[in-house]
């Protein structure tokens, strides 16, 4: 489970290759003069929960968004389940359907009810019939604890409820992996836990997850691996225990001292 740290191009053995779901190798990206991602190598194996932490501006959100190509990359390769990310078009759309995404600002469809939000992808992308899609949507809404709100519009829900609906919307596509881009950063403090609990449950059930977050408690309890980023580079990768109790890099020590003692 913890084997797939960074894998050099072409040198991974057959077993690890079969088990690795998301592979980034030598990924670089610039925003103008800013080199936001620098030689990123990262392999995420099936069923693994990887938490990406780091100071703001370190490129962790960008990293998360490159995995389903909401951000393009300048060089390097990204493969998902053995297939390299194609250019914008039908093939990419098909691949994105298998990669769930949960945003900081929820991004629920404002003109659709909660139930319709969870049904839309199933019906229009997966071509599931409406009845089956609705049953599944209701089941998922129940699972994340917002079944009562099914017929309301997103604006009528609290932030925590909206984010749980967004998780249900992602789950409805039966994704191979779900990307969480700072899922609790826009929430009021008392709503953070209800979202983290849903995520923790997903992690326990074996969902492959990439989570960009500032919630160190979640990283400690749910992550299989912590990836620490700073200035566009992966500085350190370790199990949460090792990372939080005994960080190796000075950059990580500095970061942890700032967030853990205030």
């Amino acid at each position: 489970m913890m084997s797939g740290v960074s894998v050099a191009k072409g040198s991974d053995d057959a077993v690890a290759a079969a088990d690795s779901l998301v592979v980034l190798s030598n990924v670089n990206k610039h925003f103008g003069a800013l080199h936001v991602l620098q030689d990123i190598d990262l392999t995420i194996t099936r069923g693994e929960v990887v938490v990406v932490i780091g100071p703001s501006g370190s490129g962790k959100s960008t990293l998360c968004r490159t995995i389903n190509r909401l951000e393009t990359i300048d060089s390097g390769t990204i493969t998902i389940d053995g297939k390299p990310l194609p250019a914008e078009g039908r093939e990419l759309a098909r691949l994105r359907a298998d990669v769930g995404m949960v945003f900081q600002s929820f991004n629920l469809f404002a003109h659709k009810t909660v139930l319709e939000n969870v049904m839309l992808g199933q019906v229009k992308v997966r071509k599931t019939d409406k009845k089956t899609a609705e049953e599944k949507a209701r089941r998922l809404l129940d699972r994340v604890g917002v079944a009562v709100q099914a017929d309301k519009y997103p604006a009528q829900l609290s932030g925590g409820q909206q984010q749980r609906v967004a998780i249900a919307r992602a789950l409805a596509m039966d994704p191979k992996v779900i990307l969480f881009d700072e899922p609790t950063s826009a929430l009021d403090p008392e709503m953070i836990n209800e979202v983290l609990e849903v995520m923790q449950q997903l992690a326990r059930e074996g969902m492959t997850m990439v989570v960009v977050t500032h919630e160190m408690g979640f990283a400690r309890s749910a992550a299989n691996r912590v990836v620490f980023m700073a200035d566009g580079r992966i500085v350190e990768e370790a199990t949460p225990d090792r990372f939080f109790s005994n960080p190796r890099s000075d950059r990580a020590k500095d970061f942890l001292s700032k967030i853990l003692h205030h």
């Binding site: 759309a93 991004n107 003109h111 229009k124 919307r169």
Partner: peptide
Amino acid sequence: VPLGQAEAARSLGMSFSQTLRLVVLPQ
């Protein structure tokens, strides 16, 4: 229409025309 709406639609695997027709234009 906020950019996040189109990003959410694309993340679900919708094509450009589906994103426009089902999510962006109605809003």
